[in-house]
Write a protein that binds this DNA or RNA. Structure first.
Lengths: 155, 155
DNA sequence: TCGGTATAGTTCGAATTCGAACTAATCGAC
DNA sequence: GTCGATTAGTTCGAATTCGAACTATACCGA
């Protein structure tokens, strides 16, 4: 194998760009959501996923997978959101072990309120920095990466 | 403006792919480094940045910017790495307030040891999932994104 | 139907992160 | 030179994350 044990210059540039961009975007988004909506980014992501789901509800495990967090991490965040009245828990009728996280009206309102500024930031920091073609390529490429990691088809 | 207050389907796909890929890759890399080298990813990144720097040393603030973390966060991690003998601190001769984080021989050895498996994972999970063209596009696009965020030319 | 195994979610403790407040040293205008 | 404003780094407390251990329920084969 010619692939050395170090990343070559081009690989390193790509990897560094990926890491830096994700950390910087994450930091900026987090800061903005906190300042303007009093939500952390993980919390906001939970609300988005719930609002996209039928009936505004999802099982804990499914939600944890969608937002890429541990189950205990989700338990914590749902606890906070519940305390804030944005979400509530309902025992799953068909499985006593299971719990549905359900978006409340207040949660939906909060999301509608917070969305515009958040969306503007996502656009200005990421989407508008890329050409339409770059955006498509990035979207396709990273979807593949995510899919492979989820299904374990990867190292 | 036609840009609504929500992301359209294509924008949402790109944003979601970006978030999921970065979280999943991050999680996988973290797990692998911990298992095989006893290092966290942030710690590993610090070692890489130091090993790339002349004399294997960098000022704390500069290093914090490179790895995209807060100064207090870096203080903590350098403390851990120092305890492990991988890095040590040296007061900057030209500025009594300043501190250099310096890679030790042990730190360099540790990095050389850990690198091959790490590099393989970065390749198999990210780089090899993309065509050469996709990789270039991603690298260029995300470099721009990172640069704009660093220089504050962005929302 | 019973018992063993697997699954859903929570609890717990340890590690890590951040920002605000702090200390110490440097810079700049006068 | 000297005082006020900046800058470098650390300390501190609060919030968040994870995984391991735990509880409770469901599933499945004999």
């Amino acid at each position: 194998m010619t692939e050395s044990q170090w990343l070559n210059q081009q690989e390193m540039a790509a990897w560094t760009a990926f890491l830096e961009a994700s950390h910087l975007v994450e930091r900026r988004v987090e800061q903005q959501l906190r300042d303007q909506a009093g939500l952390s980014h993980p919390q906001y992501e939970i609300l988005v996923r719930l609002s996209d789901a039928p009936e505004g509800e999802l099982r804990m495990t499914e939600l944890a997978e969608k937002v890429v967090t541990s189950k205990s991490g989700l338990t914590y965040q749902i606890g906070r959101l519940e305390k804030a009245g944005l979400v509530h828990r309902r025992t799953c009728p068909s499985d006593e072990r299971g719990v549905h996280a359900v978006l409340t009206d207040h949660g939906r309102r909060k999301l509608r309120e917070a969305a515009p500024d958040h969306v503007n930031l996502v656009r200005s920091s990421l989407i508008d920095q890329l050409s339409a073609e770059q955006l498509t390529t990035l979207s396709e490429g990273l979807s593949t990466v995510a899919h492979k990691l989820r299904t374990g088809e990867t190292g």
